Amino acid sequence: MSAILSPRPLIKENDVKATLLSPDFLRVSQPKTFRHSIDVYLKDSNATGNIYFARHFEWQGICRERWFFECVSADMLQSLGVFITKEAQQKYVSETFAFQKIDCEVNTFGVKHCSFSLLFRFFVGGELVAVGHQQIVFANKEKKIARLPDHILAKIREYEVEKGE
């Protein structure tokens, strides 16, 4: 095997500099973030108008299901198996009240072949009011942990952030 060396460069130096400094080349791909809004009513609150803490877990479920439906698989992969919530946590940053609009952002982190975690951030008027996560495991129809299909893993990774973000 031999190589042919060209006496002149195939790409001019200025072309290389322009390519390396172009906005498209410098752009680091950012993960997608799923957003869903929830309206809060009196039924969600106690007598003083504070929102019951358990509602945040309900909202995690609502946002998780909407994310699966819109972004991953509308049938929730029911023909292949089930998603199991292995762990869930919620940290409350500040109180929420009836008639506020809760905006939820969902991302993934810790994506592996059979599991991943969902990160939930809840905002009111742009201010963080709660943050939580769920670890999700995929199991086949026999309820044994199974590998997620590659095309589903690719969709899940589109939303992946570092855990600390």
Rank of each mutant, 00 (worst) to 15 (best):
G126P: 06
F68R: 09
A54M: 01
A146M: 01
H113D: 15
H56Y: 15
D39Y: 10
V82K: 13
Q30A: 12
V106Q: 03
I152S: 00
E165H: 11
G132I: 03
T108C: 03
K32P: 12
G125W: 01
Q134W: 00
L153K: 04
T48W: 06
A154H: 07
K12Y: 07
D44I: 01
T33H: 03
K32H: 11
E70L: 02
F138R: 05
F83H: 07
D44W: 05
W59L: 03
H56C: 08
F69Y: 14
R35I: 09
C71T: 11
E87I: 06
V129S: 02
L119H: 11
R8F: 11
V82I: 13
F120L: 03
P9F: 02
F138A: 06
L5Y: 13
V28P: 04
K101T: 15
P23I: 00
S29A: 13
V82H: 15
A139P: 10
S73M: 04
I11T: 10
I145K: 09
R27H: 07
F138N: 10
K17A: 04
F25E: 04
V82W: 13
Q78I: 08
V161F: 07
L42Y: 13
V131W: 05
S22A: 00
I152E: 00
E70P: 08
G126H: 02
E162N: 12
T48S: 14
S6T: 13
K12N: 12
I84N: 14
V111M: 01
E160R: 00
S73E: 14
Q100H: 02
S79V: 12
P31E: 01
T96V: 15
D15T: 08
L148S: 05
C104P: 08
S45W: 04
V28N: 08
K144I: 12
V131Y: 07
L21R: 09
L20H: 03
T48Y: 14
I84R: 13
F68I: 15
L10G: 13
R147F: 02
V28K: 10
L148Y: 02
G61E: 07
F116G: 10
C71Q: 15
T96K: 08
R157H: 04
K86C: 11
E105P: 12
K144M: 09
S22I: 00
R55L: 09
M76Y: 15
C71G: 08
V106H: 03
K143F: 14
F120E: 07
R157S: 04
K101M: 09
L77T: 13
S73C: 11
K101A: 09
